[in-house]
Write a protein that binds this DNA or RNA. Structure first.
Lengths: 240, 240
DNA sequence: TTGATAAAACCTGTCGGACAGGTTGAATTG
DNA sequence: CAATTCAACCTGTCCGACAGGTTTTATCAA
C-alpha cells in the first residue's frame, strides 16, 4: 500500500515527474488495481514521495492524457479502461510530422484488419454480426451523404475489431480513425464513378455477410480486396 | 505562428490542459514542424493562451510522456521522433489491469510479425540482414545465459520490424517488448528440453536466412511457425 | 574586422501557498 | 431510522519564487 520514497525508485528518468509516474503505475500493479479503482489523492502521493503537489499533478495529468487513469474534479483519480486515445495522438503526430505516410498506415490497417475480420467471422455474436451488417447497409442507404457514409464505414471497421474479442486490435483500429477521417474523402472523391463507389459499398456488405455466415476465409479475402482497391483509389488521387 | 486564445479552441476537453494540448499539437501541424524543431517557451504559450504556466507545463509534460515532444532543462521543448514509449506503457497497463491477456498479445504479435518478416525479406538492406542473422546466431552462442538469449531474441524481432521500413510496425513490435520480457522466461523454462530450445533458436536462424535470401514466403511461414510453437510452450506452462 | 570571453536574458524543474468549486462521508436532526 | 446538513477532502487553476542550465548579446582583445 505504501509507496517507496523517490530515491529508491528504479523508474528514474532524471526528473521527479518520471519517478512519480513510475511510482503510480507501480502502485496500480502491486495493488492489482483494475478499471474504476481509486488511486491515492495528490496530497497523499505528494507526501509519500516527498515531492511537491505540482510534480504529482504533472504525473497524473500525463497518465490521464495516455488514458491510463481518469481524472475528475473533486473526485479521486481512478484506473481507466483501455482506450485508443493515446495511440491516436501518436499516429496523428507521426503523420503530421512526416514520420509516417499514408501507405504505411494502409499497410498496417490491412494487416490488422485481415486478422480482425477472420476472428470476427469466428467469434462474433449474432448481435455483433447484425450491427456490422447494419453499418454496411447504412453506407449504401446514405449514399448521397459522404459524411454519413464515412462514419458508417469507420464504425463498420471498428465493430469488426470489437467482434474479434481482442482489445488490442480495437485500440489499433481505433487509433487510425483520426487519420482515416482525413484521407477518406480523398479516396471517395478519387473513385472514377458512382458505380465504383457502389462497388465499394458492395464489398462491405459482402464482408458483413461473410462474418455473419461465419466464413473467416471469405471475410479475410474481402477485407484484403477492400484495402487493395482503396489503396488503388488513393494512388489514383496522387497519394503515394 | 500565433495561437488562438483558449476560448476559440475546438479541442475542449473541459479542462484548460486539454485545450493547451490541442493548441500545441495544432501549432506543430500548422507550422509543419518536424522532429527537432523547437516549440514556443512555456511563458510564451502561457501568454498566448491566457492560461497559467502550470497549465502549459502539464500540457507539455503530457506530450512528453507520450513522446510527442522532448523536454530538456534550460532548453526549449522540441518535436520528438516517434517512439514506442507511450504504447508500451499502454500495453503494460492493459496487461497489469487484466484488460489484456497474453494470448491476445501473442495474436497481435503473430499477425504483425508475419507481415514484418515478409516485408523485411523484400526490403531489407544487406546490413540489416546481417544484423538480424547476428542476433539469431547470438541466441545460440549464448545458449547458457537465458537473459542474453532473450535480449537477442527481442533485438531480432525489433530489427526485422525496422527492416520492414514501416515505423508503425516498429512501434507496435517495440511496444510489446516490456510484456515480452516478463513472459519470455516462462516460455523458455516451459520447453521440455534443451533440444526444444535449440530448435527454437534454429527457427530464428532459418528465418534470418530466409530474410537474407529475400524469400518473403519462407520468412512469413517461419515466423508463423515460431509463434505457434511459442504459444504452445506458453500453454504448456499454464498461461491460457 | 574578427574571434574569444563575459554578462545578461531566457528557460525549465521544483517548491509552496492560495482559492474556487465539486464530492464524500459523517454528524445531526426530525 | 432516514433525510439533511455540514465539515473535511479533493481537484483545477493561478501566482510568485528560486536554483540551475542554455542561448544570445555585448564587450573586449588581437
Amino acid at each position: 500500500m505504501s509507496l517507496a520514497p523517490v530515491e529508491e525508485e528504479q523508474f528514474a528518468g532524471g526528473n521527479l515527474v518520471s519517478t512519480a509516474i513510475g511510482a503510480i503505475t507501480q502502485h496500480i500493479r502491486t495493488n492489482e488495481l483494475g478499471p474504476g479503482d481509486r488511486l491515492p489523492s495528490e496530497a497523499t502521493l505528494s507526501k509519500e514521495l516527498s515531492v511537491s503537489r505540482s510534480v504529482v499533478r504533472e504525473a497524473f495529468r500525463s497518465l490521464a492524457t495516455m488514458r491510463l487513469i481518469d481524472l475528475n474534479v473533486g473526485k479521486r483519480a481512478t484506473v481507466a479502461q483501455l482506450d485508443h486515445g493515446a495511440m491516436s495522438l501518436m499516429i496523428e503526430h507521426g503523420v503530421h510530422t512526416a514520420q509516417i505516410n499514408i501507405n504505411q498506415v494502409y499497410d498496417v490497417r490491412r494487416t490488422i484488419e485481415m486478422r480482425t475480420s477472420t476472428l470476427a467471422a469466428l467469434r462474433r455474436t449474432d448481435a455483433e454480426a447484425r450491427i456490422i451488417l447494419d453499418h454496411a447497409r447504412a453506407m449504401e442507404t446514405n449514399f448521397a451523404d459522404a459524411d454519413k457514409v464515412m462514419e458508417s464505414d469507420l464504425a463498420f471497421h471498428l465493430e469488426i475489431a470489437r467482434a474479434s474479442k481482442n482489445p488490442i486490435f480495437s485500440i489499433i483500429v481505433g487509433a487510425f480513425q483520426g487519420v482515416s477521417r482525413q484521407t477518406w474523402p480523398i479516396g471517395w472523391r478519387s473513385r472514377a464513378s458512382d458505380a465504383e463507389r457502389h462497388a465499394m459499398n458492395r464489398i462491405h456488405i459482402d464482408l458483413a455477410e461473410a462474418i455473419l455466415a461465419g466464413d473467416p476465409q471469405a471475410a479475410s479475402q474481402l477485407m484484403a480486396r477492400h484495402f487493395d482497391e482503396s489503396a488503388k483509389a488513393l494512388l489514383a488521387a496522387g497519394i503515394a
